[in-house]
Design a protein around this nucleic acid. Sequence first.
DNA 1: AAACCATGCGCAACCGCTTGCGCTAGCGTC
DNA 2: GACGCTAGCGCAAGCGGTTGCGCATGGTTT
Lengths: 330, 330
Amino acid sequence: MTVTLADVAQACGLSPSTVSRALSDPGRVSAQTRDKVARVAREMGYTPNRVARSLSMGRTGTIGLIVPDVANPFFPPIIKAVQARAARKDLVVVLADTDERAADELDRARVLSKQVDGLIMVSPRSPEPRIAEIGRLGPTVFVNRRVPEHPSVLIDNADGMRQAVEHLVALGHRRIGYLAGPRRSWSNQQRQAAITEACAQLGAELVTFGPFEPQVQAGVQAADLLQGSPATAVIAYDDLIALGVMARMSERGLSVGRDLSVMGIDDSPLSGMAYPTLTSIHVPGAEAGATAVDLLLDVLDGLHGEPPPPLVELETYLVVRSSTGPAPSR
Amino acid sequence: MTVTLADVAQACGLSPSTVSRALSDPGRVSAQTRDKVARVAREMGYTPNRVARSLSMGRTGTIGLIVPDVANPFFPPIIKAVQARAARKDLVVVLADTDERAADELDRARVLSKQVDGLIMVSPRSPEPRIAEIGRLGPTVFVNRRVPEHPSVLIDNADGMRQAVEHLVALGHRRIGYLAGPRRSWSNQQRQAAITEACAQLGAELVTFGPFEPQVQAGVQAADLLQGSPATAVIAYDDLIALGVMARMSERGLSVGRDLSVMGIDDSPLSGMAYPTLTSIHVPGAEAGATAVDLLLDVLDGLHGEPPPPLVELETYLVVRSSTGPAPSR
DNA sequence: AAACCATGCGCAACCGCTTGCGCTAGCGTC
DNA sequence: GACGCTAGCGCAAGCGGTTGCGCATGGTTT
């Protein structure tokens, strides 16, 4: 049915080994042989069996990608980027979604690790020890989480956060709310810390709420919590929560951008679609994804000289839209 | 380094074949043997090498999933569902994103087909002949496209469309606009046809615009086209376009739901997040994904009796929110 | 007690490709 | 003309499982 290397070899009157070399390592055979093999292979419609190749080479040409929630708009750009970058390097990517269940991360990683060359863990929620265990499963790069001894691509939230607070303070806001994300989330910790520091430096008072799940519904809930608060502006852990807040405010007849300034984080495609458009802190998800692939490949290729695990930090910056405005003069 | 079947066998004083059977086909060995093997395997931390198994069994335990654009909110739910369903069946899924480039579909399918047991093609944009070729690559189920001789899960747009038009007509709209999607899109053709028929039956006049790419930006553009039109309500090919229209209208100071009624299709999570919330036609993406996996598995398991290729149609229905309202009395 | 059968396991081939090593033929060198 | 080297191939051993078939063993039949 399917034509194998041996078939081609026989048709050429050569040994399988020679055909194999002719196809993969052309330098090692004569020009004639190479051409002949190439021609015959094409004519016969030969396509190498990747599985067999994997078995004998110990490389699958596959990388695993594990994300918490494909439906969260922050991740698709990352997934897309990883996929695109991988495709160009002739790799395919197998995807797993943990549905935000930290407990599933290790399981999925275990399963995948046996059929991939390396793993990319995006925004993992697992506690430290579990993360370490995942790291031991095989070459792994972490995105959005700092893991000692492992290459990771991180988001430098500090800059964006500072810009955000500066922006709000400039608009006259003095009491700022932060709608925290999941407690286990590394980036939530980073963001909260950065924002706390920025507020302190810039003389704004910070009130935090939460934690909230990164979902619109949580934002709706948050909006109501905000009721009694003196905060005139809020920064949400992510765009989804921010959108929920906005939706709820509008529903209650309040004007976002006037009565309350709302800011998201991620600058997901949603930001521009909302009304009012959402001021947000841009997080370079796509770059992060592409970078992760590059790092992983570095590790895979240079399994030799173990350079110190690279750590790439990507910058964030503020994108001002219309959900933030001057503080209401009380 | 890594413990193999042979290692376990040796440790047990058994042959690899027996160990293999003990692990996979417990009925064929004695109870003691089975237990002993299980114990030793666990102690030694044995994990079967999926690649090796694939080679000898001819099954990879992997399915391929090809979508046009991960970043389009219509697809993530499908991806998620496929992934989840597959995971439960002990399958992993490899994902490819064609970036809406029809030409890439065949290429990606070719690559994937060699390392998966079957393929799921979601909303493929390729022309007929290419589609057929993809189908020949191996077991394939199509989602959102009818392909003769192949199992497919389709969206029955007619129902939802009719409900949509009924809704608008009931609100007093008599001139309805349709913002068409990509010409190559099978679902666009279906939708346009269904809506045309519904309008004819219900006595509304239909004006179509487009085609538009399924992106917010296209909706913005569409909104401007709508300017001179007599349409008092529009149905967009998908939520993204609808959102673009809404955003642009708001920007121009018009009130969506009063000055113009806007309706999307897909009922993506976005619909509820927008302001005003978007009336949309619910398309069961998640079910479609799960169903696709089931169909694929049917095909894979029962490669024997070739039953007629199953074709399942999923229903759509209207979800009324606040972007549609009474026709303005001119 | 002989013929018989089920049960439990091992042998060895095989899945399709890669690769270390050895062999041969043809060339240049002294 | 003998010797050594290199380029070009083939042999065969894996990679780590699965599986058809045959071989004992012990227990049932008659």
